[in-house]
Design a protein around this nucleic acid. Structure first.
Lengths: 193, 193
DNA sequence: TACTCGATGTATCGTACCGATATAGCCGTT
DNA sequence: AACGGCTATATCGGTACGATACATCGAGTA
């Protein structure tokens, strides 16, 4: 459980919720969005699409093409898929704090309720703080035996995580501040597309 | 080729070059050093140790234990392993700029020659710059269609990569400056922080 | 016109990876 | 004397994904 593919699944669902698309375009979108970490390959994408189709969450429409040329396959979200997607979105549990999942979850924040947004942000932060603590204590027992380069690597890594934590804290504060001015109105944050 | 396991292989070799160790300790060391990114599991470590043993690069000495208790297995570098290790260290080629490999390569910089250090640093930087460029152009064509959260994610990701690039540039400059004052003396660079 | 090159597009296969899990002795605490 | 946590070795099944194959298209260029 909590497979790596869960993140991709959610990303595909989210992209298709905006508009139907074929595989190649899907890959471009995902890479454009989360591409600074790791690139999505077809070996990952197509099996995922197949599985989602089998589950009935998306449907594949084969384009009618003029000639003997290979038709493109356009995927769209089904009613069940839409339902499944929204249920996934509201799950702000531990799996959403993971490295692989957090990025996708964040990218879909516009479709996520404010309480869930805060839950995910805080969970992610606690996850990183925990990691920071582990590395810090591990380093403390071994600091003297480390050479200058190893120490520099350590320092830089720790700084990156701290910076990430600060970013999250800022976002949480902002989220809480917004909650005041939000009465019953959801459309202000959505920007309705 | 350029398997993910290559990084682990190098890490194990590097750790064992310092002193013999058994598997559990090896795992702790690796996690303490690179643990802020991803944790090493036994399912990865033990097959790696087995393979390195088979290849003759490390040797497994079973500890003599007093009773019927399970003996610990201490691994040490063989002569062939040492040779293999140093040859790997001097390869500053493209595989060393990868996300998975760079951390380990950097941690072993104290054992790496200065030209190779610069080569790796510069290669890594070019790799990140390339990635930055790709995401930037991808984002430019789609900026208007993105909601506030997606844009914030994009911004933060880009900033992280830029920061990483600046760090590398600093290190490269420092490396070049050191090269002047380095006559025949290697021990001067070790202390300086 | 024909050629090359890069982008578009769908698809599969083999293998290396790694999370989960089993086993078990040891030690400190309640 | 029971519990939980740390040390320690080890394997297995599922899955992710890099490499690769195939095919069409438009733009440049010779």
């Amino acid at each position: 459980m909590a497979r790596r593919g869960a993140a991709l699944e959610l990303a595909v669902l989210g992209l298709l919720a905006d508009s139907p698309m074929h595989g190649y375009e899907l890959r471009k979108q995902v890479n454009g969005l989360l591409g600074w970490t790791r690139l999505l390959s077809y070996g990952t994408l197509y099996p995922c699409l197949k599985q989602l189709t089998r589950a009935g969450f998306i449907a594949a429409d084969t384009e009618t093409t003029p000639r003997g040329k290979r038709p493109r396959i356009v995927y769209r979200l089904t009613a069940e898929g839409k339902e499944y997607f929204t249920s996934l979105l509201e799950d702000g549990g531990p799996s959403a704090w993971d490295d692989e999942n957090f990025g996708v979850r964040f990218a879909l924040f516009a479709r996520t309720s404010s309480p869930t947004r805060v839950r995910i942000l805080e969970g992610r932060r606690s996850r990183l703080e925990e990691r920071l603590e582990n590395v810090r204590t591990a380093a403390a027992t071994r600091r003297e035996r480390m050479d200058a380069y190893t120490r520099e690597l350590q320092r830089h890594g720790l700084e990156s995580v701290e910076r990430e934590i600060n970013w999250l804290t800022e976002l949480i504060d902002r989220e809480r501040a917004d909650a005041f001015s939000e009465h019953e109105d959801t459309s202000t944050t959505d920007k309705e597309k």
